[in-house]
């Protein structure tokens, strides 16, 4: 649109002010303009995204140990290794478990907080800030606090002190997977960090629900509380909920920081990114196998995204109308 109005304004200009040293309108040829605007971004994209992906694809067919410029071609060996490696296949299970925990709990907690804050008559801004603030904390810093002070295994760790008041023995939360206390640590740290952000999204959506709907419902005899929530609030939040769930899934897929910092030298609780990091950049320095794993993961993400688009109709909304 802007280009149209632009040309409309500039074309009569010469007749009105012929001698004004008008700046040459930035018109030129549209192709050049296109490249001028998108060029820098495209170059960045090529260098920082496509080149590494291509390089990774190339590496995945080589025996690349302690080098990123390998010479020994080994075909699909790296792929075979990764697909039969318990660590890598296990990491996909870990991710699924993690997503199954974190997505619904964050969704519910964020919605709950939003509903509470929304009903507040006073100090609303204060509570909104309080709940939102953890979003600004780094995952690494929060993980260290969780690991070293709250869920420390020694008797004077915060949680163990609390347990001690009830005469319960201290627990080494992160030492082993049985019972899987480490999930408690991982899920709570992420909940604390994320819930506030999604609460803000829900809060915005809640404030967008027209008040008339509630009034009409009240006239029709809907009881305030669960009934109104179930039949008015929740359906009105559908778009936000979908977006929140998708964002949460994406973030769960990207999980790295807290797993890396909370669990060291484990063979459990390793999501795909940690597993690939350890393979390629850890002490093994196996860039070939790591790249093969990354390729498999990329393929999986592509398939999941396509399927999701198909079933949820995401991005099809406009045409459907």
């Amino acid at each position: 649109m802007p280009t149209l109005t632009d040309s409309g304004v500039t074309s009569p200009a010469p007749s009105e002010a012929p001698k004004a040293r008008a700046r040459r309108p930035l018109r030129g040829n549209p192709t050049a303009n296109f490249w001028l605007f998108t060029g820098p971004f495209m170059i960045g994209l090529a260098i920082f995204v496509y080149l590494p992906i291509g390089w990774s694809l190339w590496l995945s067919f080589f025996d690349a140990r302690f080098t990123v410029t390998p010479s020994e071609f080994i075909g699909f060996d790296n792929y075979r290794y990764m697909l039969t490696d318990d660590g890598f296949t296990g990491s996909l299970v870990t991710f699924t478990v993690f997503a199954a925990f974190i997505v619904p709990t964050t969704w519910a907690l964020a919605l709950g907080l939003a509903l509470m804050v929304n009903r507040l008559r006073f100090m609303r801004a204060f509570f909104r800030s309080v709940f939102f603030l953890p979003t600004a904390v780094s995952y690494v810093a929060a993980s260290l606090i969780w690991k070293m002070s709250i869920f420390s295994g020694v008797r004077f760790g915060l949680m163990n002190t609390v347990l001690g008041w009830f005469g319960v023995d201290g627990i080494a939360w992160l030492a082993g997977p049985e019972p899987p206390w480490y999930w408690l640590v991982i899920v709570t740290v992420r909940l604390w960090l994320q819930a506030g952000f999604f609460m803000i999204l829900f809060l915005a959506a809640l404030q967008n629900i027209p008040q008339e709907l509630y009034e009409a419902a009240a006239i029709d005899g809907a009881k305030p509380g669960w009934q109104t929530f179930r039949y008015i609030t929740l359906p009105q939040l559908r778009a936000t909920s979908t977006a929140v769930v998708l964002l949460l899934l994406v973030q769960a897929y990207q999980a790295f920081d807290e797993f890396y910092n909370l669990l060291s030298r484990t063979t459990w609780g390793r999501p795909p990114l940690v597993e690939l990091y350890e393979t390629a950049l850890g002490e093994n320095q196996d860039y070939g196998a790591g790249s093969a794993g990354a390729m498999i993961l990329t393929l999986l993400i592509c398939v999941v995204t396509l399927l999701q688009g198909r079933f949820m109709g995401f991005g099809r909304g406009e045409e459907a109308k």
């Binding site: 082993g176 063979t267 002490e283 093994n284």
Partner: peptide, 19 residues
């Protein structure tokens, strides 16, 4: 090597820290 040391450390994780 380091990769082998890692592998033996995983043994501890697999059958001492884990059942």
């Amino acid at each position: 090597t380091q990769a082998m040391i890692d592998a033996t450390e995983d043994v501890i994780a697999d059958c001492v820290r884990q059942d």
